[in-house]
């Protein structure tokens, strides 16, 4: 088999083994937006002290999507931003609204530090991916004569995320974008286990990142 043929075979196989995902993206805009030359944005995962919080992998995915492609956005890394403005963006103290942000700007040095980084927009990402249901059964055996898996098992996942975009210059809420995606994954045991995996978290990330790019650059 040639390398070209192997590539097509792998692509077909991955398409066949990908589960279906349905997703919905919604947006509401409060003010017009635009990014000038040298302007930057920061993506922050909203941390909480309960048992559910935005996964680091999700914010990393949004950052990867926004900083790549044909129209990349200049992003300040979350860690660098939090270190520069320590302690004001730590989970316990971080502003929860654009009004809180204006209060924070009265603290010594905060406004200057923000201006130095050329940050025009802050996007807070909040949400998570949860398993909403699972079922089926599959058993695998292994013996000296061989082994195999029989049965079928499935699980449903629901990814729900929201981005709140704050305008740092105007100290207002620029808008919100929400992304919801759900999908069911299967593992069918036909001697060898065949996984058909749905990735709603990935779909929500791509949908949210594309809409966020359009929201910021598109202007409104």
């Amino acid at each position: 088999m040639t390398r070209h043929g192997a590539g097509i075979w792998l692509m077909t196989l991955s398409l066949l083994l990908s589960g279906c995902v349905t997703s919905r993206i919604e947006q509401s805009r409060d003010t017009a937006t635009a990014m000038g030359t040298g302007d930057a944005m920061v993506i922050l995962g909203r941390a909480s002290y309960n048992d559910r919080e935005t996964e680091e992998s999700f914010t990393d995915c949004i950052v990867d999507e926004l900083s790549s492609g044909g129209n990349p956005i200049t992003l300040v890394p979350q860690k660098e931003f939090k270190d520069n403005l320590y302690p004001w963006f730590e989970p316990r103290i971080a502003p929860t609204s654009a009004e809180d942000l204006s209060r924070l700007f009265t603290e010594s040095g905060v406004r200057d530090r923000m201006d130095e980084s050329n940050i025009k927009y802050l996007a807070w990402i909040q949400g998570d991916t949860v398993t909403t249901g699972k079922g089926g059964s599959m058993s695998c055996t292994l013996s000296t004569f061989g082994g195999g898996c029989f049965g079928m098992s499935y699980w449903e996942q629901d990814a729900s995320y929201e981005a709140s975009i704050w305008d740092v210059d105007k100290l207002t809420n620029a808008g919100q974008i929400s992304a919801d995606a759900s999908g069911t994954s299967y593992i069918a045991g036909l001697i060898i286990p065949i996984p058909i995996i749905a990735r709603p978290g990935n779909a929500a990330c791509k949908g949210l990142a594309n809409q966020l790019r359009e929201f910021i650059v598109g202007g409104g």
Partner: peptide
């Protein structure tokens, strides 16, 4: 980890 300098008065 990093050792950030606090931005306080």
């Amino acid at each position: 980890g990093s050792v950030p300098t606090p931005l306080v008065e």
